[in-house]
Every structure is written in C-alpha cells, then in structure tokens.
C-alpha cells in the first residue's frame, strides 16, 4: 500500500530513470541540483506531466502506464501540490484560494469557506483571509499555498521547493511550521529541494538525484 513510481520521467528531450516507493506516513525528500528532474517527478505524480515508460500507481490503482494507455487525469488523483512558483489564483482572495479545491469536491461555498478558514488559522493567516495574493508577503503566500494543499487532506502531498520563494527571515519560521503541519499526517509526502538543510528536520527518507 503505497505510492510506487518506476520508469522514465521527462518532458521533451529530457528524461531520467526513476524508482521510488513512498509508504503511507512516510516523507520522502528528493534532493539534487537544478535540472536533475526533481520537479518533473512531482509533476508526473501530480498528473501534469506524463510518464515516458514504466508505471505509476497509488494503493495499487494505476495512475499512469503508457503501455496500456492508462492515465488518470490530475483532477482525479487528488494530490495536494505546493508548486515551486506557488501559482496562487491572482483574482481570488486567500480564503477563496484555499477553498477552491474543496468546492471542486462538491462542498457548498459556506462549508468550504468554513474549513478553509480553519486551515488558514493553522498557518496563522486568519486575519488576512480576504486579501488577494498580490497584497501579502512572499512568506505569507507560501503559507497559503501550503494551506491550499493541506486542506484537501490529500492521500499524496507533493511539495516542490517549499522554501524557495521565501526570504531568509521567514524561512526559519516556515521550517518550524511545516513539521507541525505534517505531523500525524497519514498520507505519503514527497518533498523536493535543492538544499539538503531544508529536508533534514522533515524527511524520513532521503533520495539524492545526481
């Protein structure tokens, strides 16, 4: 019972062989230089990129297998993703950003906003709920992106350089916050970072990409 990815990932000309398994409750950190394909692995798991060959499955459900042409679209994988460039929706308030995924699952606006508000409180942003992403700081945006992914209670949580777009001062605060959020989390977590220091405190396993 786990997330299993074995095969070739890549976009365009780029490709690399990957073999990872992440158990429930495990936090796998992938570290390596820029351009080594770390982010591509996350995108492949999220369903934004496709495998070139091999197989990706979660809890024995096949998500992507080129040879059988099976491909589960991103919206049916229910991964929680924190993108490297965050990709908050610029026209929506912070709370609406967090509630967006919940509403997609069929929750009413009221319910979704209630749960989004709880999540924003967890990351300490409850007072800024009605601001737009353009009106808050980089560290705050980063926390919104985390809340947006976590609020879905996703079986798979994907974090792409969660500290990259944060200035040094708020970096430590975020580093302290993240373990508390992920603690007791039952899903599989894949964390990508180019900085080994980031992952030390969090990861249960570390995989180095050359």
């Amino acid at each position: 019972m786990s997330l299993v990815l074995q095969g070739q990932v890549g976009r365009g000309e780029f490709s690399r062989e990957v073999d990872v398994t992440v158990q429930h409750g495990e936090i796998l950190a992938i570290v390596g230089a820029n351009g080594s394909g770390k982010s591509t692995v996350l995108q492949t798991i999220a369903g934004i990129a496709a495998l070139k060959s091999g197989r990706l499955s979660f809890d024995n459900v096949v998500w992507d297998e080129p040879i059988t042409k099976i491909f589960t679209p991103a919206q049916d994988r229910h991964c929680g993703v924190v993108f490297q460039d965050l990709r908050l929706f610029p026209h929506l308030s912070l709370i609406a950003n967090v509630a967006y995924g919940l509403r997609a699952t069929g929750l009413s606006k009221q319910e979704a906003h209630a749960r989004a508000a709880e999540e924003l409180t967890l990351v300490g942003l409850d007072e800024l709920a009605d601001r737009k992403p353009g009106q808050v700081s980089g560290g705050e945006r980063q926390r919104v992106a985390l809340a947006r992914a976590l609020v879905l209670r996703p079986p798979v949580l994907l974090l792409d350089e969660p500290f990259a777009s944060v200035d040094v001062s708020s970096r430590q605060g975020l580093r302290d916050l993240l373990p508390s959020l992920v603690q007791g989390y039952q899903g599989s977590v894949v964390l990508v970072s180019h900085d080994p220091e980031d992952v030390q405190a969090l990861a249960t396993n570390i995989l180095a990409f050359g």
Partner: peptide, 10 residues
C-alpha cells in the same frame, strides 16, 4: 511523451 502528444484516454 508530452501530455499533449500522447494519446490518452481520459
């Protein structure tokens, strides 16, 4: 095998 190029049954 980009997403757009591969024939995918969704």
């Amino acid at each position: 095998t980009d997403l757009k190029q591969r024939e995918i049954v969704i």
